Amino acid sequence: MKLIVFLSLFLIPWNTVYADEKAVGVEIVLAVDVSSSVSQKEHEAQIEGIAKVFEDPTILKIIDSLPTGKIAVSLLLWAGENQQLIAVPWQEISDQKTAQNFATYVRNNQKKPWTGLLYTALGDALQAAGKSFEQNEFEGDRKVIDISSDDPSNRGAEPAIVREILLSQGITINGLPILADRADQETRRELVDYFRVNVIGGPLSFVNPAVSFEHYAEAFSQKFSIEISGIPWSGNFASYSDADLDPSSLELKVTAQFAKRDN
């Protein structure tokens, strides 16, 4: 009898927490780079681009098509080591009102939270994003980290090592490299390849680059639509050789999606 009572002290709280979790189709952390390489213009482009997507009726239709009709989303701003901020806590998105509320919360972050010399600690950002899943009140069929950056990681934990830990927890990582400040097609492809090799991972993981600040909203919308639905763009992944990453191109394209790795 004493053993049963002892075990119940551990089992009852765990069951209570589990029962209280809210079922959603997918949990998504939007991890946005705000390091020193990110100009104020670039930061505002990211913030406004994200906000606009939540005001798009098409996104609501995708959410409504899920078995739960709901998703959970949070906004994480990150830069160097020990610089990760949950700018918008986890929110349930299920209708126009909740989507508009999230867009408003996002727009409240037009100002970067840190100034001065900041590093790009992409691995630390992934760690913080992964930890946030443990601290929310939702249970999704899928868990996704949607991370943007305009540079490779140059500080802190190694992204590829953190990735493997997160994959073991059932978390998918998708990447949105921002290419606007890169002067030529070669350096743009270098960043895209860095994401493909070192950052993304998990079922149907992909990279979708934003080739300009003005095009960020379109890139994010494409990416977010795939993450919500769990369905690859056009039914399959395009080769990155098909992507137009040339800064001099008159027709900007955001169509590059890559499978996780070649092996």
Rank of each mutant, 00 (worst) to 15 (best):
Q91T: 02
I165H: 13
K97R: 15
V29M: 02
S239K: 13
V162M: 07
S205M: 12
V211S: 08
A125T: 12
G201V: 10
Q91K: 13
M1F: 06
L191P: 08
V53S: 10
I171F: 09
S148Y: 06
L9K: 15
T104Q: 13
I47P: 01
W114N: 11
Q135W: 11
S212C: 00
Y216K: 08
A243Q: 14
I173M: 06
A23F: 03
D95C: 10
E81T: 11
D146M: 03
V73Y: 03
P152D: 00
I62D: 12
L76F: 05
T115F: 05
I226W: 07
F258A: 04
I161V: 14
D124T: 15
Y216H: 07
V162W: 06
E42C: 04
T16Q: 12
I200E: 13
Q127W: 07
A31V: 00
A45Q: 09
F10G: 14
D181S: 15
I28M: 11
I93Q: 04
I231F: 10
A157D: 12
H215I: 07
V197A: 08
L77C: 02
L122G: 04
P89L: 00
Q40G: 04
A87C: 14
Q110K: 15
S36Q: 04
S221T: 07
A72V: 01
L66N: 12
K97Y: 01
S229E: 11
L167M: 13
S205L: 02
S39K: 03
P152A: 00
G202F: 06
A79P: 11
G130C: 01
K70L: 01
S212A: 10
H43C: 05
A121Y: 04
V254P: 00
P177K: 08
T58A: 08
E44V: 14
